[in-house]
Design a protein around this nucleic acid. Structure first.
Length: 488
RNA sequence: CGGGGAGUGGCGCAGUCCGGUAGCGCAUUCGCUUUGGGAGCGAAGGGUCGCAAGUUCAAAUCUUGUCUCCCCGACCA
């Protein structure tokens, strides 16, 4: 079984790569750190995108599109922002090639007057644009999102988790008041958390980043953090309160009701194809991908089983009847009527692809008016009556969605510890991994020391009040426990 | 970008030490038999051995460079 997939126990990293290959989600391209997203992977991303997009629209946002290329001078306008991204930018310096003995080389004559940066994120070009869109308080708020690709010149890449080019959405909003901008930041964090939990069935914790983990140019960075099966944390989404940093840098002011000219308040927020990596490492197993029904491109696959042509015809007719019934109920379903693979092969293939439910129908089922129903997540098989199948399948898909979440949440909770001493902390991080709550004195020095000594970083500071205590390292006062983990 | 490992038909690998006609399994194509957990038999197709230089009568094999992937570090969504 699953003969092409390394077990999680043997090598989790290799397992992750094998699952992606066997589920045909993506593959490496000839360009270092860049991937080809295959149709299965793109269909999954499209479902995620559609769900998120609707959530953005429901909260009053509109989509727009800004350029891929950003003039170099824009990047230097916000000091923190430059510092954060300078080291990982792709730069366009020339505009054409010329032929040289059978090959091509960069034409030195085509050197650009001002070099262009391939966007690592779009704050700069968007704020340069917003300056022209905003004059009055009546122009605010601006609630815009864009779906785009961005490029960050990464040293070390992993499919979906960290690639040089990736797909994402970036929301960029402009507000008249600080309070409104903070509300927006928090609202979008909630949207991300809801999406992660209700659609991806991936439990997340919400919180705020420390200064060292903050987005370059933000006043505060909020995040959702998920815990993967191997005990490492994954930052799954971020929402930034940008204060007036970009408004200052790009001189974006509005005339308020009181006639005063004021700087605009800003937010930005994003999630990326990295979420697919999180999805894989939350639910999948040694047989391959496991997908939550709400995001699965195909929710149910019907595998017909037959010997003779007469049987084939009868079975396919039976299968088509089921297909029609479920299709009518809004289930994403397909019939795998390929004749060149036997059922066992198809079973294995659909399991690797993570299709939540499989219905097998053969002559025996026709005779008894049954189907065989198999759950991908539990690997169970049951004979079920054909009568009322549609509504039971619908219910089952809902159950799977809920159970995947509960299972992931239980695992997350089991892998979450709370410690009071640094020795205990070091031991837990080393032996058990997972999330660890502990007191921290709030200084970057202590944070850095912990990171150097244990590889664990502060994933988030919880929102709201916590119980006071003493830092596990320095013994200095701590306002609340913060969440540590080794992360991706 | 540093350390380690790897690159040979679509996939997984042997061959490399010790240079001498490029092989195996799976997959693919055709035919027949099969089909309730990755089918069987027969036939066929497919590879400038990552790429580029060099050494040699001769290079998958030796040398140098370079690209890509995996693991570990530094950096990051």
């Amino acid at each position: 079984m699953a003969k092409n997939i390394t077990t999680q126990e043997k090598d989790y990293s290799q397992w992750y790569l094998d699952v992606i290959r066997e589920a045909k989600l993506a593959e490496h391209s000839p360009v270092r750190g860049s991937m080809v997203i295959r149709p299965n992977g793109m269909a999954l991303w499209e479902n995620m995108r559609n769900a998120l997009d609707q959530m953005f629209k429901d909260t009053g946002h509109e989509n727009a599109y800004f350029p891929l290329f950003i003039p170099k001078s824009f990047l230097s306008k916000e000091a923190q922002h430059v510092e954060g991204f300078a080291k990982e930018c792709a730069v366009v310096t020339h505009s054409r090639l010329k032929s040289v003995d059978g090959g091509v080389e960069v034409d030195p004559e085509s050197k650009l007057e001002e070099e262009l940066i391939v966007r690592p994120t779009s704050e700069t070009i968007i704020w340069d644009t917003y300056r022209n869109w905003i004059q009055s308080y009546r122009d605010l708020p601006i609630l815009v999102n864009q779906w785009a690709n961005v490029v960050r010149w990464e040293m070390r890449t992993r499919l979906f988790l960290r690639t040089m080019e990736f797909l994402w959405q970036e929301g960029h909003t402009a507000h008249a008041t600080k309070e409104e901008a903070i509300d927006e930041t928090r609202q979008m964090l909630d949207v991300y958390a809801t999406f992660a939990e209700e659609w991806m069935a991936m439990p997340v914790l919400k919180g705020m980043k420390t200064a060292s983990e903050r987005f370059a140019g933000a006043v505060d960075t909020y995040c959702i953090e998920a815990l993967m099966q191997d005990g490492k944390a994954l930052q799954a989404g971020t929402s930034h309160f940008l204060g007036q940093n970009f408004a200052k840098a790009f001189d974006v002011k509005f005339q308020d009701k009181d006639g005063e000219h004021k700087l605009v308040w800003a937010t930005s927020w994003g999630v990326s194809t990295r979420l697919i990596g999180g999805l894989i490492m939350t639910h999948s197993d040694d047989q391959g991908l496991v997908l939550p029904p709400k995001l699965a491109p195909t929710q149910v696959v019907i595998v017909p089983i037959y010997r003779s042509d007469e049987q084939r015809e009868a079975v396919l007719e039976y299968a088509d009847g089921i297909f029609d019934e479920l299709k009518e109920l809004g289930v994403r379903i397909k019939v795998d009527d390929r004749d060149n693979y036997n059922p066992g092969y198809k079973f294995a293939e659909h399991e690797a692809a993570g299709i939540p439910l499989r219905i097998a129908v053969g002559p025996r089922d026709l005779e008894n008016n049954n189907v065989e129903l198999a759950r991908r997540d539990l690997k169970t098989k049951n004979i079920e009556s054909r009568e009322g199948l549609g509504s039971r399948v619908k219910k089952l898909l809902d159950d799977i969605q809920d159970e995947l979440f509960e299972k992931a949440k239980t695992r997350r909770d089991e892998m979450t510890s709370e410690v009071d001493s640094y020795d205990e902390f070091k031991n837990v991080i080393k032996e058990k991994a997972g999330f660890v709550w502990a007191h921290w004195d709030g200084t970057p020095e202590t944070e850095e020391k912990i990171k150097d000594e244990t590889k664990a970083t502060i994933r988030l500071i919880p929102l709201g009040e916590g119980e006071e205590g003493k830092c596990m390292v320095t013994g200095k006062p701590s306002k609340q426990k913060v969440l540590f983990a080794v992360s991706y």
